[in-house]
């Protein structure tokens, strides 16, 4: 489950875009045309309401990535596009996991959740919904451990990235 960290074909790209119709499709087309599969895509507000931030996790040939970044950068509505390696930046994901739950598994579950700073946010009729935020690796790890309880479904936000230090992402 930790292959994301090792796989050189997985990239995290941050794109700052002007809030204009079609900008998401234009960016996605650049990735698709060059054979990149988008694993996760987050579009979110920035402090300036005229701009949005897109954070894309995508798989593809590293040699092609430079070309994709340049082609994305040249889109009229794109202000900035860059890859983040995790060395210059921090990244976090958020997950909701719905698992089978019974009183007998409560202690074992709580032990695991504590280790991962995850919380039960709702329980009912044999079901618990758990929230977790952390690195992709931590989310993958918890998912692995929760499997034994029986995962009914899982929703993940996709990665958010922010550059370290004073400079903007």
């Amino acid at each position: 489950m930790f292959k994301q960290k090792q796989n050189p074909n997985i990239h995290t790209i941050s794109i700052l875009v002007a809030n204009k119709p079609g900008v998401l499709v234009r960016c996605a087309q650049v990735f698709a045309r060059r054979g990149f599969n988008i694993d996760a895509l987050v579009v979110s507000a920035t402090v300036n309401p005229e701009f949005s931030r897109m954070t894309i996790t995508a798989q593809g040939d590293p040699g092609t990535l430079d070309q994709i970044i340049k082609q994305t950068s040249k889109l009229v509505d794109v202000t900035h596009c860059s890859e983040h390696t995790g060395i210059d930046s921090i990244d976090r994901e958020y997950a909701l996991v719905k698992i089978k739950h019974s009183p007998s598994s409560k202690i074992a579950l709580n032990k695991i959740l504590k280790k991962f700073h995850a919380n039960v946010i709702r329980t009912e009729k044999g079901v618990a919904i758990i929230e977790q935020s952390g690195t992709t690796q931590e989310l993958d790890e918890l998912e692995g451990l929760l499997k034994k309880f029986g995962i009914i479904e899982m929703v993940r936000s996709g990665k958010l990235v922010m550059v370290k230090g004073r400079q903007a992402t």
Partner: peptide
């Protein structure tokens, strides 16, 4: 607007 997206430098749908 959608059909031509890959073949334009830029495009608009004026609302």
């Amino acid at each position: 607007f959608g059909i031509t997206m890959p073949v334009v430098k830029h495009s608009y749908l004026v609302k």
